[in-house]
């Protein structure tokens, strides 16, 4: 790596680096807007931009399979789940003045301190380290599949058991509320009662 470091320079970034920097700025800005905006649905939509930008970063790092998995699972399903959650909890459309809690300044202090420490440590540690992006892609589907099914089969199967457990757990959490809703009709008066039934259905 030291030999590779001699041939690179900070002042002559490659095209991949410039693209990575620009997409990274967009991603970071979208993430910032997503955690600071007062409109709850806009936060979810800015999260789409951040996650999509991360998928582009994976592509720039030649990890194709991870990029498409990111698009499929995060942009495709997780954000849709979050939007459904926002709708089912009757999140206010438009500005909600109490989106941030009272300890936002303490949170800002902690986050800025953590960011400063992390960036300093990371830059200091990997100052002379370069990723070699030439040659075959490091994360093509063939390579990823081969390593996943040669070396990581047991965690893979354990993960499927975990997903099954999560599925059963989510169903149990939803059905229990439906049983109480059927037992007492008073839950229909609660603000979430109708949404609960629709969600269970």
């Amino acid at each position: 790596m030291s030999l590779a470091a001699q041939t690179h320079g900070f002042l002559s970034p490659t095209g991949v680096e410039i693209a990575f920097l620009l997409v990274g700025l967009v991603t970071f800005g979208a993430a910032l807007v997503s955690v600071t905006t007062r409109q709850l649905v806009h936060a979810a939509l800015w999260l789409v931009v951040a996650l999509g930008g991360l998928a582009v970063e994976y592509l720039l790092l030649t990890a194709e399979f991870i990029a498409w998995v990111q698009v499929l699972i995060y942009v495709g399903s997780v954000v849709v789940l979050l939007l459904f959650g926002l709708m089912l909890t009757k999140a206010p459309i438009g500005r909600s003045p109490d989106a941030d809690s009272g300890n936002r300044w303490a949170a800002l202090t902690v986050a800025v301190a953590a960011a400063a420490a992390l960036v300093w440590v990371v830059v200091d540690a990997f100052r002379a380290t370069w990723i070699d992006l030439d040659g075959a892609a490091a994360g093509s589907t063939k390579v990823t599949g081969a390593s996943l099914f040669q070396n990581w089969v047991l965690p893979f199967e354990a993960l499927s058991v975990l997903l099954l457990a999560a599925l059963v757990g989510a169903i149990v959490l939803s059905r229990k509320a439906k049983a109480t809703a059927a037992a007492s009709s008073a839950v229909a008066d609660a603000p979430g009662g109708r949404a609960a039934k629709e969600e269970v259905r």
Binding site: F10, T14, F20, V122, F126, T129
Partner: peptide, 8 residues
Amino acid sequence: MHLAYPAV
């Protein structure tokens, strides 16, 4: 690519 970009 410099490793500091994705790390930062």
